[in-house]
C-alpha cells in the first residue's frame, strides 16, 4: 500500500468514516528535523461533510534531534491548547506500522513563517518596523503565557521536573553534553572549553525560582504569523521543564540576528527582554540569560554534530546535514562571543 493509501486508512479509522479520503498530499522541505506533509482530509462527522486542510509531522529515520520521542511535544501541545497560540492537535499515532514511524496530525494554520536569515545589505524579512515591534510584543505575550502556565496541574508526567533552577541548568548541560559525546567526530576544544565554563556558571545559579515549561526552540523561524499577530508557535521537539530564561536567551541569540542587533530580526535584544517583562514575565536575570546564551550556542553545535554524525554513518542521505561540518566553524565564533573571548558584534 502506498503512503497516500496508508494515510487514508488511518484517517478512516480515526474519524470512524470508512469513506474518508485525502487529496493534495504534499511533502514540505522546510525545516531540518521532522518530516512535514500537508493534505486535505474529507470525512463525514455526525452526518456533516468535513473538509479540512491538515498537517502531518512524522518522526524522521535519522536527523538533528535523534533519538526522537514525539510524546513530550504532543503532551505539551495538548496541554497548551487555549493557553497560547498552538496548532490544534488532532491525532497522535505511535504505532510505526501505520505510516512507518510515529506521527501526529494538526489542523492547518494560515500564516507565513519569517526566517531569521538576511543577506548582508538585503531587506529584513519583515521590513516595516512597526509591524516588527507589534509582532515581537505578541511573541513575548505568548512566551509569558507559556512560562506562567501551571504545568503542575496538567497531565505532563512525561517531563522530568528539575527541583529548581540550578538543577534545571545542570540537566540541560547534561542533555547537550550527551548529544555532543554521542556525535562528536573527534576532539573539539572550543566545545570542551564551553562545557567547562557552563559547569562553572551553573554552580553559581541559585536553586530557588520558577520552573516553567520551556519551548526549547522559541525563535523567529518557528512561528506562523499574519501581519503582526502570532498565529501558531511551532516545532515543539525540544520542549521540557526548566528555566524561563532559557527561552529568552534562545529567542535573542546571536544565531538568529544575522548581521543586525535585532533579536530574531524583529527588535533590539534589550527591547525584546523589555517586552517580555512588560507582558508579565517578571524580572530578567542577566546572569542566567548569559548562561543560557552560551548553552544555546553549545546546543546548536551539538545539534549540528548530531546531523553530521547521521550523515557520516550513512543513516541519512540528506546532504543538508553535511553542510554543518563547516558551519560548526562559524558557530565557534558565536561560542567565542558568548564566552567573552571576542567582543560582541551586536547586542
Amino acid at each position: 500500500m502506498d503512503f497516500q493509501a496508508q494515510l487514508q486508512t488511518f484517517l478512516a479509522r480515526v474519524t470512524g468514516d470508512p469513506a474518508a479520503s485525502i487529496e493534495e498530499l504534499r511533502r514540505h522541505t522546510q525545516g531540518f528535523s521532522m518530516e512535514t506533509m500537508s493534505f486535505v482530509g474529507n470525512w463525514r462527522e455526525a452526518g456533516a461533510l468535513q473538509k479540512r486542510r491538515l498537517v502531518l509531522r512524522r518522526q524522521p529515520e535519522a536527523g538533528l534531534l535523534e533519538p526522537y520521542d514525539l510524546r513530550p511535544q504532543v503532551a505539551a501541545m495538548r496541554a497548551l491548547q487555549g493557553v497560547m497560540q498552538v496548532p490544534p492537535l488532532l491525532w497522535f499515532e505511535e504505532d510505526c506500522a501505520v505510516l512507518g514511524a510515529p506521527f501526529y496530525v494538526m489542523g492547518f494554520v494560515e500564516g507565513d513563517v519569517p526566517l531569521p536569515m538576511v543577506a548582508p545589505g538585503a531587506e529584513l524579512p519583515i521590513p516595516d518596523a512597526d509591524t516588527r515591534e507589534a509582532l515581537a510584543g505578541d511573541l513575548a505575550e505568548n512566551l509569558v503565557a507559556l512560562h506562567r502556565f501551571d504545568w503542575r496541574g496538567a497531565a505532563l508526567e512525561i517531563f522530568a521536573a528539575p527541583s529548581g533552577l540550578r538543577q534545571a541548568a545542570q540537566m540541560q548541560i547534561d542533555v547537550w553534553r550527551g548529544y555532543y559525546e554521542r556525535s562528536r567526530p573527534g576532539p573539539l576544544p572550543m566545545l570542551e572549553r564551553a562545557f567547562r565554563e557552563l559547569d562553572r556558571r551553573a554552580r553559581a545559579i541559585a536553586e530557588h525560582g520558577q520552573v516553567s515549561i520551556v519551548h526549547g526552540d522559541f525563535r523567529t523561524g518557528n512561528f506562523l504569523r499574519k501581519d503582526a499577530h502570532v498565529m501558531a508557535v511551532l516545532d515543539w521537539e525540544l520542549v521540557h521543564l526548566g528555566d524561563p530564561m532559557e527561552d529568552l536567551a534562545w529567542a535573542c541569540s546571536r544565531l538568529w540576528r544575522g548581521q543586525t542587533d535585532l533579536a530574531g530580526l524583529l527588535v533590539p535584544r534589550a527591547r525584546f527582554l523589555e517586552l517580555y517583562r512588560q507582558a508579565g514575565g517578571g524580572e530578567i536575570d542577566v546572569a542566567r540569560v548569559a548562561f543560557y546564551d552560551l548553552l544555546g550556542a553549545v546546543k546548536m553545535a551539538a545539534i549540528m554534530l548530531t546531523g553530521i554524525r547521521a550523515f557520516a554513518d550513512a543513516r541519512t542521505d540528506d546532504v543538508r546535514m553535511a553542510i554543518f561540518a563547516h558551519q560548526v566553524d562559524g558557530l565557534n565564533m558565536v561560542i567565542a562571543e558568548s564566552l567573552g573571548l571576542v567582543p560582541s558584534l551586536n547586542n
Binding site: M117, P120, P189, M190, R193, H326, G330, M333, V342
Partner: peptide, 17 residues
C-alpha cells in the same frame, strides 16, 4: 581558540542556508 575561530570564520563562504 579565538584565533582559530576567527581564521575559520573568515574562510567561510556566504551561507546558502
Amino acid at each position: 581558540l579565538t584565533n582559530d575561530a576567527v581564521m575559520k570564520a573568515l574562510g567561510l563562504k556566504t551561507s546558502r542556508l
